[in-house]
Amino acid sequence: MRRLPGIALALLWAATGAFAGPSRVVTMNLCADQLAMMLAAPGQLASVSYIARDTRASAMAKEALAYPVNHGLAEEIYLLKPDLVIAGAYSTPATTGMLRRLGVAVVVFQPALSLQDVRARILQMGQVLGRKDAAQVLLAEYDQRLAALQDAGPEAPRAALYAANGFTSGSMTLAGQILRAAGLRNIADELGYARSGHMPLELLAMSAPDLLIGTSPYPRASRSEDNLAHPVVRQLAARSSAGQIRDADWVCGTPHVLRAVETLAEERRRFVEKEGSQ
């Protein structure tokens, strides 16, 4: 089985009900790591990427301790004897190319750019793992939680996503959709940032958002984060009792994005109650 070309092997698993799925799976992408940990059968997942244990980036760092880690190198992954490797669109092409030449099946997952994409990635992971029933259960839970949240209306508070180097995200990004699902309007949309881009500090100040959604600074100093220490940014951030987002809940298109939505929805409720009492 392992010597079939990667694409042919993946198609075989997806097309036949006679074969339950791969028995030794290695993931080498943070987002694939987490979806696989949520859906894999006991003993099916042989290794996850080392980033899966990084509490700054991974929403499942504790769960990842139960798995051996890899560093995305073709040699180490091949020696794990996987019958399926799951990579991301930005995984090292040299690694995935070498694994395919060695006869290892490789499936590449695209990043989720919307809340709808999260649904698609859950189903895709269920398919390639041969765990369609488990994926349907996870998807139903995701849909139920998402349906209980409130989309932004015309009177919703105005919020700004603002990260290192003035990075912001509009409505055609996963982060922008998280903001909207929480019942907040995104000033990036007002300013023409449909996707992601750099928002000058002056624009941020003139837009006067009701809430500023910042990011958690990394332990080592970086000039890219200097903008987050500016007095204007600090003044805007002081209006938000939530302060900073937990990056790990925002990074990947997994059901963990709903924790970010729920946190912002609670922040919106506090803001509306505060404004209503004045």
Score class of each variant (00 low, 15 high):
Ala57Thr: 12
Pro82Leu: 04
Ala66Thr: 05
Pro82Phe: 01
Leu65Arg: 13
Ile77Met: 00
Glu76Arg: 02
Thr96Lys: 10
Ser114Pro: 11
Glu76Val: 01
Ala61Asp: 11
Leu99Asn: 07
Val104Ser: 08
Phe109Val: 14
Gly103Trp: 08
Leu113Ala: 11
Val104Phe: 09
His71Ile: 04
Asn70Ala: 03
Ala94Gly: 06
Pro82Trp: 03
Leu113Asn: 14
Leu73Trp: 02
Asp117Lys: 05
Val106Thr: 14
Met60Val: 09
Glu63Gln: 15
Leu79Asp: 02
Ser91Trp: 06
Leu79Tyr: 04
Val106Pro: 13
Ala112Arg: 13
Glu75Pro: 00
Val104Arg: 09
Ser58Leu: 08
Gln110Lys: 15
Gln116Cys: 01
Pro82Cys: 02
Arg119Ala: 04
Lys62Gly: 05
Ala87Gln: 07
Leu84Phe: 05
Gly97Lys: 15
Ala94Leu: 12
Leu73Ser: 06
Gly72Met: 01
Arg56Cys: 01
Leu73Val: 03
Gly103Lys: 13
Val106Cys: 12
Tyr90Asn: 12
Leu113Pro: 01
Ala94Glu: 14
Ala57Gly: 06
Leu80Gln: 05
Phe109Gln: 15
Gly72Val: 02
Val106His: 14
Phe109Ser: 14
Tyr78Met: 02
Leu113Val: 10
Gly97Val: 09
Glu75Arg: 02
Gly103Ala: 07
Ala64Glu: 07
Ser114Ala: 09
Pro93Gly: 10
Val106Asn: 13
Leu80Lys: 05
His71Arg: 12
Leu80Asp: 04
Val107Arg: 11
Val108Gln: 10
Pro111Cys: 06
Arg100Asn: 07
Ser91Tyr: 11
Val107Thr: 10
Gln116Met: 03
Leu115Lys: 12
Ala105Arg: 12
Ala61Glu: 10
Ala112Ser: 13
Leu80Tyr: 01
Gln116Asn: 02
Thr92Tyr: 15
Val69Arg: 06
Val118Tyr: 03
Arg101Pro: 05
Asp117Ser: 07
Met98Gln: 15
Ala61Arg: 13
Met98Val: 15
Ala112Val: 07
Leu80Pro: 00
Ala74Cys: 00
Val69Lys: 06
Met98Ser: 15
Tyr90Asp: 11
Glu63Val: 10
Leu65His: 10
Lys81Leu: 00
Tyr78Ala: 04
Ala87Arg: 10
Glu75Cys: 00
Arg101His: 14
Thr96Ser: 07
Ala89Gln: 14
Arg119Glu: 10
Val106Ser: 13
Val107Asn: 08
Tyr78Gly: 00
Ser58Pro: 09
Lys62Ile: 08
Val104Ile: 15
Gly72Cys: 00
Met98Lys: 15
Lys62Arg: 10
Leu113Tyr: 11
Ala66His: 09
Ala66Gly: 03
Gly97Met: 12
Ile77Ser: 00
Arg119Pro: 01
Ala87Lys: 07
Pro111Gln: 10
Ala64Cys: 06
Arg56Leu: 08
Thr95Asn: 09
Ala57His: 14
Ala57Ser: 15
Ile77Ala: 01
His71Ser: 06
